[in-house]
Amino acid sequence: MPYLDQIDPIAVSLGPVKVHWYGLMYLLGFAVAWWLGARRARAGRLPGVTEAGFSDLMFYTMLGVVLGGRIGYMLFYGFADLLHDPLSLFRVWEGGMSFHGGLLGVLAAIGWWSRKHRLHFFDTVDFIAPLVPAGLGFGRIGNYIGGELWGKPTAGTFFDGWGVVFPRALPEPFASMSPAALRAQFETGALNAFARHPSQLYQAALEGLVLFCVLVWYSRKPRPRYAVSGWFALLYGCFRFLVEFVREPDAQLGYLAFGWLTMGQLLSTPLILLGLYWLWKSRSSPTLEPESR
């Protein structure tokens, strides 16, 4: 039985100020990352780094997520719009964030911070990697609540009769109906043919929960340099590549090749290769031991 997604994307309205669930999900992801990272920093997992130094690291990585995510989205998914209207880069309220762009922003922030604190770049990356999946998971839940980045239709497939109806993905005349009228149509079964894969929830489960559990468990004790980063890149790349098969490609891009290759898959392929390389490299790399405190 399909489900109709009619969750209000606005969590709180205070006069003209509207707080969206998507923004709250970002804050929740940052809060979990900060909490877990602070615990590990106090345990000496970043030798020589004080709590103030860790706070600086989190501030710069959060800045890298936001700036890199927005710039990456415009370069990877909205380059034509950026050329036509360069100011669109700053209209963040219109939506549009890229994980791969955010990742590059985070790596740039880590590089700057690591050099300042005289730490090996990958020692810091290994420390940060287990903190990232929480934000990915909550972010995908925010996508689901906002009814965006939906999956492909399930009608006529093995999953026929199951899925989620996203109002923003409906054709006319359904798209312009009021929520009450749309609910009435749904209850008659008229919208069942428009059910789609909730790919946002698939990603929240794989890139968020599963990746978080694996990395936190794996990094519970010191590992060779590159190992934690390698597992992060490999698993995220594989999870994202697989979910893209049931996720609707970006309308402005469509499929890039072979009738199935999406931009998400194209950008995830280097991560899979890098993950394999870093895991291989970790076999002959030193292990950073925690500092006694």
Rank of each mutant, 00 (worst) to 15 (best):
M1D: 08
L14D: 08
P16S: 12
K18D: 10
W21H: 12
G29V: 00
V32W: 04
W35A: 00
L36M: 14
R40Y: 08
R42C: 06
V49K: 02
T50C: 10
A52E: 13
M58D: 00
V65M: 12
L67F: 11
I71M: 04
I71A: 11
I71P: 05
G72Y: 05
M74W: 00
Y77Q: 01
H84V: 01
D85G: 12
E94C: 00
G96T: 01
G96V: 01
G96A: 01
S98D: 01
L104C: 11
L107E: 01
A109N: 06
W112Q: 14
R118I: 05
V125H: 00
A129K: 10
V132F: 07
A134S: 15
G139Y: 09
R140Y: 13
G146Q: 04
G147N: 03
G147C: 04
W162F: 13
A169M: 13
L170G: 02
F174M: 05
F174R: 03
A175I: 14
S176Y: 04
M177L: 11
P179G: 02
A181N: 10
E187Y: 01
E187M: 10
A193N: 08
R196A: 03
P198A: 04
Q203V: 04
Q203L: 13
A204G: 04
V210I: 12
L211F: 09
V216I: 07
Y218N: 01
R220Q: 09
K221Y: 08
P224W: 12
P224I: 06
Y226E: 02
Y226K: 08
A233G: 02
L234Y: 15
V243K: 02
V246G: 08
V246F: 09
V246Y: 03
Q252S: 15
A257Q: 04
W260F: 15
S268C: 11
P270E: 02
L271E: 08
L271Q: 06
K281R: 15
R283F: 13
R283P: 01
R283Q: 14
E291N: 03
S292I: 15
